[in-house]
C-alpha cells in the first residue's frame, strides 16, 4: 500500500470522525444531507458484500467494518435520535434518490467487468459513490451560515478521492497490468464534482471568512 492510498483512507476515516463529532458536539445535524448519508450507506453495503468471503488483509476488513458501522451510526443519529432528528433540514434536502440510483444501476448493468451479481452490484457501488455527494452539495448551497465542521467534512470527502487518484497513478506505474477504467473514470468524475466547492472552501480559508456557496 502506497502513501497516497493510506493518506486517502485516513482522510476518509477522518471525515467520518468530523461528521460524528459535529453531530454529537452540537446535538444537531443541520446542513447535513440525510440523502447523501443514506446513499453512502448503500454504497458501502453494496461494495463490501465480500466482507466475509474475500479476505485481503486485516487492515481492509477492519476499515470496511468501521465504514459500515459508522455509516449506520450516522443514519441512526439523524433518523432515530430524539434530539438530533428534529434538527434535520428535511424541507431543504429535496434531491431525488432515483435520479442518482436509477442511472447508476442501469450503467452498472451495461458497463461492468464481469456479468455476475457480485460484480454488477460492486460496479453499481462505484458509480453511486461518484455522485452520492450531490444532495449534500445542493443542501450546502441552500444553507446559510455553513458551520466549520460541515465545511471541513465535505472538504475531507473530496480530498479523499483526490488522494485516491494519486494512488491510482502511482499504482499504474509501479504494478504491472494495473488498469481499472471503471474505478478511475468514476473517481475522476467524483473528484470533479468537488472542484467548485474546493474553490470556495480555499477562498474562504485564505480570506479568513465564513464559508458560503453562491446560489
Amino acid at each position: 500500500m502506497n502513501i497516497f492510498r493510506l493518506a486517502g483512507d485516513m482522510v476518509h476515516l477522518l471525515s467520518f470522525v468530523v461528521l460524528v463529532l459535529k453531530i454529537n458536539a452540537t446535538k444537531s445535524c443541520r446542513g447535513i444531507s440525510l440523502k447523501t448519508q443514506e446513499l453512502y450507506t448503500l454504497v458501502f453495503v453494496c461494495r463490501y458484500l465480500d466482507l466475509f468471503s474475500n479476505f485481503i488483509s486485516m487492515y481492509n476488513t477492519t476499515m470496511k467494518i468501521v465504514f459500515l458501522g459508522t455509516s449506520f451510526a450516522i443514519l441512526y443519529l439523524m433518523r432515530g435520535h430524539k434530539v438530533i432528528k428534529v434538527t434535520y433540514d428535511r424541507e431543504q434536502d429535496t434531491f431525488r434518490y432515483l435520479f442518482l440510483v436509477l442511472p447508476c444501476a442501469l450503467l452498472a448493468l451495461l458497463i461492468h467487468n464481469a456479468w455476475t451479481p457480485f460484480e454488477v452490484v460492486w460496479t453499481f457501488s462505484i458509480y453511486l459513490e461518484a455522485v452520492a455527494i450531490l444532495p449534500q452539495l445542493v443542501l450546502l448551497q441552500r444553507t446559510q451560515n455553513i458551520d466549520n465542521l460541515t465545511g471541513n467534512y465535505v472538504f475531507l470527502l473530496g480530498l479523499y478521492r483526490g488522494l485516491y487518484i494519486l494512488n491510482w497513478i502511482y499504482r499504474y506505474f509501479t504494478e504491472p497490468h494495473y488498469i481499472q477504467w471503471i474505478v478511475w473514470i468514476s473517481g475522476i468524475v467524483q473528484t470533479i464534482l468537488y472542484l467548485d466547492f474546493f474553490y470556495y472552501y480555499i477562498k474562504s480559508w485564505k480570506n479568513n471568512v465564513k464559508l458560503a456557496l453562491p446560489s
Binding site: D50, N54, Y178
Partner: peptide
C-alpha cells in the same frame, strides 16, 4: 489474480 487486485481498495 486481477480479480483480487481489483477489490483491494476501499
Amino acid at each position: 489474480e486481477r480479480e483480487d487486485l481489483k477489490k483491494d481498495e476501499l
